[in-house]
Structures are given as structure tokens and as C-alpha cells.
Nucleic acid binder design. Structure first.
Lengths: 238, 238
DNA sequence: AAGTGGTCTAGACCACCAT
DNA sequence: TGGTGGTCTAGACCACTTC
């Protein structure tokens, strides 16, 4: 009984949709019926249903009911804050990470503005090449303020840094701002990636914030043009 | 008194943030204080605050209070479901639209899968080149199922089709799925756009759904590499 | 008229934070 | 200890859809 009630209900319904027990285009039980099924109040049921709606699982229709959306087409590659490791595992690809650079640096002017640090701060710099199906197609450059991440090793970087920070260090990631653009190649790109004949590269700049709204990480994820894909689900208005 | 209470409060706070009355990193009044200010119940206040949090305006901290963020609201280029016209106006650029193709077609196989229509359906096809600051840099290809859009004119397409559909036809757009990738140039791209030396183009595929979860529009928005930018704000977990 | 989801209320208990 | 946001409850009225 550790979890919230509404989250338990949400996860239960998601499981039922993904297992096929609740099929696309069929109607969910009404809110009042769910109140009885889960022995809870209507507002709690509505909290769970609103979460399902936001995440693209159901469509609510006034006077009619809630209907299961055909979510099978929604295979979220990079949407949200999913890390490379989670992503590769989800898609079932053969993936490999090479740590190309690792260490503490003094931030230059560009990085100081991006990470909101001063020249007195020290910053972790991690550069990793991502190999999928035998080709090096993604270059991740991560910068962490040492104030939030006192200790880091090359070995941790070979795995998932996020997993380490959340589970071991106990940092709580709250939100992120993502910017996607297409840039010209840099020396590093040519040096660390298998680029074919391409002249440009897709750059995803990620600003990651903690629970207390402090910026603790800046990441540049550089993707080879032909392998880049981003999927987004958005609701209009509320 | 037409609007919802929580939406009125939300818009009021947004206005206060944007006007500078509520400054970044300052604390909002507590929920109980807001209850008194707005003469409403706490759940209604919380509904407004959750909306502010989701949209990146504030950060809520248990035991401390809600704080104004300064992260977001710079410039949201394509995030959400903003149309080209809204976007150009927001950024204050000189923009111009040329309708290159307009008419009813029978969908080919590719389009039939994308729009979920059969060969018996008729589909509006609209191709528009978007000129910003004197350069033609975006090519929008829109396809509407005629079932939902019985009437359409070239003149409407020169303005905002969305505005026409929502205000005149009364269609209620509910959600959309967006896919971003980088493709090779097509004949149309070379023909209708000012492309410089680029060999590739950023393609945003947009699947737009109505209130009743029916797919009514498929759009391909093709952006010249150097002019493309996408910004996204995402919260972790709930 | 009956059922549905959308909004709102008034109150309760909890976990967390500051003091 | 008092204030804060997070969760949950039980009930009410409304607008919309269906019969």
C-alpha cells in the first residue's frame, strides 16, 4: 500500500489496455462504476482518468463515456525524458556506449550561460558515443554541476547516469526543456561518429531541472540525420 | 461569467506572471490564501495551480509553497498545436503564404493509410509555401477528409485553415500526434522552396484528431534545415 | 428521464518544511 | 509547532447524450 490510489488505478488501467483486456475503441466502465469497482471516490477515479487522457490512452466524451484510444501506433521514441538506455532497451536494439571523454572542467563562457554557473564552479564533462546495430550514430555531451553531483566515475557513465543519479545519489528530476535544431558538423562529430556523407546533424539540447527548480544538467544529444526520430503527443487546451 | 472558475484563475495568474507583477523565483500566495483571494475552494485553486505547473509557469514544493519559474515562455515555436500563422504573428516576422496546389483528390495508397480513409473517400489536398522575411522556407502539405470538411476555398487557405475550421465549421480539435524526422528532398521541395545547397529537409508529420477521436487531418510540414527549431517542455512522471 | 462526464464545495488526514 | 502542498472523501449541480 505504498502507492497513491489514483496512481494504482492508472497503472491498472494501462496494464489492461496494453494486455488487450481493454481493446481500442471500446468504452471504459463509467466513473460511477469505477468508483464501486475500486471502492474509492469519484474525484480519485477522475484523477486517474485525466492522467490516462493526458498520456494518450483514452478519450473522454461528455455525456458518452471514456473510450480506449488505439495506442499501438504511438511508439514514443524520445518523447518526454526517456534516456538512451531505456530507449534502446524498449526498441530491442543491439546498443553499445563508448565513453570518449570524462573529467572535471572549468566552464567556458558558452557553458556558463547554458548551465547557469560561474567561473568558480567545477563541472563534470562526459562525452559518449552511442552505437546501435554496429554504427556510431549518436554523440551525447553531458555537463553536470559538481555541486549536485560530487562523485562520478567512468564506469557509471558506461551505464545509465540517470539511474545512478536518481537511485544512488537520490536526485529528483522534475522537468526539462528540450530544443531541437539542425546544426553544421563539428570536429567532434566527425571524429567520434560514423557519419557517411552528411554535412549536418540533429542537435537536441536538454536543460534538466531538479525538484527545487535548480538547473543541474545540460546535455547535447547529437543524432545522425537519417537515424533521428522524435514523436510527440499533445492535447489541445487543458 | 462564462468561463470556468479554475480557468479564470489560471489565466489571471498567467497574466500576472507575464506582466511582471509576479516575478520569477518569488513565492505565490499559499493555496489557502488563494482560496480567500478568489473566494473559492481549495480543489479549484489546486486545479489552476496544476495547470500552471504543467505548462511550466510554476514549481510546486511540498511544505514550502509554489514558486514562479522563469524557464519557459521565451518562444515556443512549434510546441503544442500552434499553427504557422499564430507562430509567425507571435514572433513578429514578416510572413506570407502562397497556395501552390488546391483541390479534391482520390487518395493513393500511402495517403489512405495515413488518413485512415478508403478509396471511396474524397480528400482535400492543399499545398502551401510559407515565406518568412523574403525566403520560402516551409512547405505545408495538408490533407483533410472531405467527410469532415465539406466546403473549402483557396481564399480560406491563404489565411488560417484552423481558424476557419474551428470558428466557422465548428470542428473541435482535441489532440495530435507529431513525428519529426529528416528526409531527403523531393521534387516538390526543390520546386516550391528556396533551398540553398541543402540535400535534406526536416519533416514534421502531424496527425490531428477531433473531439470524438476521429482522425480528420494529416499534415506534412517541411522545413528548411537551417530555419527549423522545436522547443518542448516536459515534466517527469505525473 | 436516465446516464454520462465537468465543475465546485467543505472538510479531513497526511508528509514535508521551517522555526 | 504551525504552515505548506498532496491525497482522499461525500455530496451537489450542471451540460451533454441517449432513449
Amino acid at each position: 500500500m505504498r502507492e497513491n490510489k489514483f496512481m494504482t488505478i492508472y497503472e491498472d488501467v494501462v496494464a489492461n489496455i496494453q494486455s488487450g483486456q481493454l481493446r481500442p475503441n471500446t468504452k471504459l466502465p463509467s466513473e460511477n462504476e469505477l468508483v464501486e469497482q475500486y471502492e474509492t471516490s469519484r474525484e480519485t477515479i477522475r484523477k486517474a482518468l485525466n492522467l490516462l487522457s493526458q498520456n494518450g490512452y483514452i478519450q473522454k466524451m461528455k455525456g458518452k463515456g471514456s473510450f480506449v484510444l488505439d495506442v499501438s501506433r504511438f511508439d514514443f521514441p524520445i518523447s518526454g525524458l526517456v534516456s538512451f538506455k531505456e530507449l534502446a532497451e524498449k526498441l530491442g536494439h543491439e546498443s553499445h556506449t563508448v565513453v570518449e571523454e570524462f573529467g572535471l572542467i572549468k566552464p567556458d563562457e558558452e557553458l556558463r550561460t547554458q548551465l547557469h554557473v560561474t567561473s568558480k564552479d567545477t563541472v563534470w564533462k562526459v562525452v559518449r558515443a552511442r552505437e546501435i546495430d554496429g554504427e556510431r550514430i549518436i554523440l551525447d555531451k553531458d555537463f553536470f554541476n559538481k555541486k549536485f553531483v560530487p562523485h562520478l566515475t567512468e564506469d557509471i557513465c558506461r551505464g545509465s547516469i540517470y539511474e545512478y543519479l536518481e537511485k544512488e545519489v537520490g536526485l529528483k528530476i522534475s522537468f526539462a526543456k528540450k530544443e531541437i535544431s539542425v546544426d553544421e558538423l563539428t570536429e567532434d562529430d566527425r571524429h567520434y561518429l560514423d557519419l557517411k556523407e552528411y554535412e549536418h546533424i540533429v542537435v537536441v539540447r536538454n536543460y534538466v531541472y531538479l525538484d527545487d527548480a535548480s538547473l543541474f544538467q545540460y546535455t547535447e544529444s547529437r543524432h545522425r540525420l537519417d537515424k533521428f526520430r522524435f514523436v510527440d503527443f499533445a492535447r489541445r487546451g487543458v
